[in-house]
C-alpha cells in the first residue's frame, strides 16, 4: 500500500483518537477519576447522532449538539450517583461503578436502538476528495480541524481561565480548594458533564468512518487508555501528541501487518512502556 496514503490515514486516525480521549484526559487530570463507561458513552453518542440524522431527519449540525446534550446528561447522572464515592476518593468503587454504567448503557442502547449494525452518514462522510493518488473524505478533514480547535481551546481554558484554575485546584487538593471557596461537588459534576459532551462530540465526528453497533466501545476504551497513559496522565498536550502517534502506528501496523490485531499491538506497545518505565508516566495535576 501507498506510504503517503497511510500517512494521511494515520494523521486522520490520530486526530480521531485524540478527540476520543480528550474527555477522559480532563477527567483524569482534574478529578483523578476514571470512567470505564467511556466506550459505551462513545457508542451512545454515535447512536444518538445516527438516530437524529436518519430517524428524526435532523440536520447533522443539529444532531451533534443533541448528542452532546445527551452526553452531558449521562455524565451528570453518573457523577451525581457517584458523588459520595468521589468525595471519599474511593477509586476502587468508582471504577466498578463506571463499568456498571457502561454495561447499563449497552443494555439500554440495544433495547432502544436495536442490535443491528448501522451506518452513520453525514454530509461530509460521503464526499470524497482525490488528491493525486491520495484519497480521503471531508469528514476526515472535519475530524482533524475540530480536534485541533478543541485541543487549543481546552488548553487555553485550563491554563488561562478561572474555570481552568478552579479545576486544577480541585485536581491538586480538593480539601484545600474548599478552603479557597471552591464548590468541589460542582467541579466534579461539571467535569463529568464535560466528559459526556466531549466523547459524544468525538463519536458524532469519528463514528461515520465505520459501521456502528451497540456492542462497540471496547476498542475506544483501550485507545483512550493508551493515549492517556502514553501522553502523561492528565496532560492535554501529551494526549494530543500521543493520539497522533498512536494513529500513525495503527495505520501502518494495520496496513503492513494485520488490521485485526492493531489495537492489540498498540496495547502491547503500552505494556512494554509500562514495564520499562512504570514510574516514568508522572501524573500532572490539572491537565496541563
Amino acid at each position: 500500500m501507498n506510504f503517503t496514503q497511510q500517512l494521511v490515514n494515520g494523521i486522520v486516525l490520530g486526530h480521531a483518537y485524540a478527540l476520543i480521549a480528550i474527555g477522559w484526559t480532563v477527567l483524569l487530570g482534574v478529578a483523578r477519576l476514571v470512567n470505564f463507561g467511556h466506550g459505551q458513552m462513545y457508542m451512545l453518542g454515535a447512536f444518538v447522532t445516527w438516530y437524529g440524522v436518519s430517524r428524526l431527519g435532523l440536520p447533522y449540525f443539529v444532531a451533534i449538539p443533541v448528542a452532546m446534550l445527551v452526553g452531558v446528561a449521562v455524565g451528570y447522572v453518573m457523577q451525581r450517583v457517584m458523588l459520595q464515592l468521589t468525595l471519599k476518593q474511593d477509586l476502587v468503587s468508582i471504577m466498578i461503578v463506571t463499568l456498571g454504567f457502561g454495561y447499563v448503557l449497552h443494555g439500554a442502547a440495544a433495547l432502544f436502538f436495536g442490535s443491528t449494525g448501522q451506518i452513520l452518514e453525514t454530509p461530509f462522510s460521503t464526499k470524497d476528495i482525490y488528491w493525486g493518488d491520495l484519497w480521503f473524505t471531508y469528514q476526515d478533514i472535519a475530524i482533524v480541524i475540530v480536534a485541533i480547535l478543541f485541543f487549543a481551546v481546552l488548553k487555553y481554558v485550563i491554563d488561562r481561565t478561572r474555570i481552568g484554575r478552579l479545576a486544577r485546584m480541585v485536581a491538586e487538593d480538593p480539601q484545600l480548594a474548599q478552603l479557597a471557596g471552591v464548590n468541589v461537588r460542582r467541579v466534579y459534576l461539571g467535569v463529568f458533564a464535560f466528559e459526556g459532551a466531549a466523547v459524544a462530540l468525538a463519536a458524532a465526528l469519528v463514528a461515520p468512518r465505520t459501521p456502528i453497533l451497540t456492542s462497540m466501545g471496547f476498542d475506544e476504551v483501550i485507545i483512550t487508555f493508551v493515549v492517556v497513559v502514553l501522553g502523561g496522565i492528565g496532560s492535554v498536550t501529551g494526549s494530543y501528541v500521543a493520539g497522533l502517534a498512536l494513529g500513525l502506528f495503527t495505520a501502518f501496523f494495520g496496513a503492513f501487518v494485520s488490521p485485526a490485531y492493531a489495537t492489540a499491538a498498540a496495547f502491547a506497545v503500552l505494556i512494554a512502556v509500562l514495564v520499562v518505565r512504570p514510574g516514568g508516566l508522572a501524573v500532572s495535576p490539572g491537565g496541563r
Partner: peptide, 11 residues
C-alpha cells in the same frame, strides 16, 4: 489557613 499543606504546590 490550615495546618500542613496550605498552598497549591503545582501553581
Amino acid at each position: 489557613i490550615p495546618e500542613g499543606k496550605l498552598v497549591f504546590t503545582q501553581m
